[in-house]
């Protein structure tokens, strides 16, 4: 477990960049695709397939020094039902191990954040490296209210 933690702390910062993209509000009736666009410095356009009160939101592809990263959030009835990372560095076994560890954590906390009905979290100072696995990261991704 400790080794896994160290791997995450040392390299999972790559996924932090997932959250430099912006998404729409998660209100049950508002899913304007226009609210999703590339963050400054990112050229790839973002896309959304929004249905009634839901849809799949694709963040833009962020070029990190480890490789390209992209995150997708699925919304249904104003709630996040899925978090996926279709594009991520997977050049070696270590990358794959990190992804296998970090992504389920992100998904789980996204769901937990919704049930907690909170807007933001106050806690001991989070480092950039620890952000990906934090509740605040899920809240930032989801804009829950």
């Amino acid at each position: 477990m400790r080794r896994v933690t160290l791997w995450v702390l040392s390299t999972v910062a790559v996924l932090v960049l997932l959250f430099t993209y912006r998404t729409s509000t998660m209100g049950p009736t508002t899913t304007p695709p226009a609210a999703i666009a590339a963050a400054p410095g990112q050229n790839a356009p973002a896309a959304a397939r929004a249905g009634s009160g839901g849809g799949t939101y694709e963040g833009s592809v962020a070029q990190t020094r480890w490789g390209p990263v992209q995150v997708t959030i699925t919304v249904s009835g104003g709630r996040i039902t899925g978090v996926d990372v279709p594009v991520f560095p997977a050049g070696n076994r270590r990358d794959e191990e990190i992804n296998a560890f970090a992504l389920p954590v992100l998904r789980q906390e996204t769901v937990e954040a919704q049930s907690a009905e909170i807007d933001t979290v106050s806690g001991a100072t989070v480092t950039s490296d620890g952000y990906i696995a934090s509740l605040q990261a899920a809240l930032d991704a989801a804009h829950l209210s």
């Binding site: 959250f19 430099t20 998404t23 989070v126 950039s128 930032d140």
Partner: peptide, 12 residues
């Protein structure tokens, strides 16, 4: 509601 996140001073 809309969010922006950046890493500054070593923190999100």
């Amino acid at each position: 509601r809309r969010a922006w996140v950046q890493q500054i001073m070593g923190m999100p």
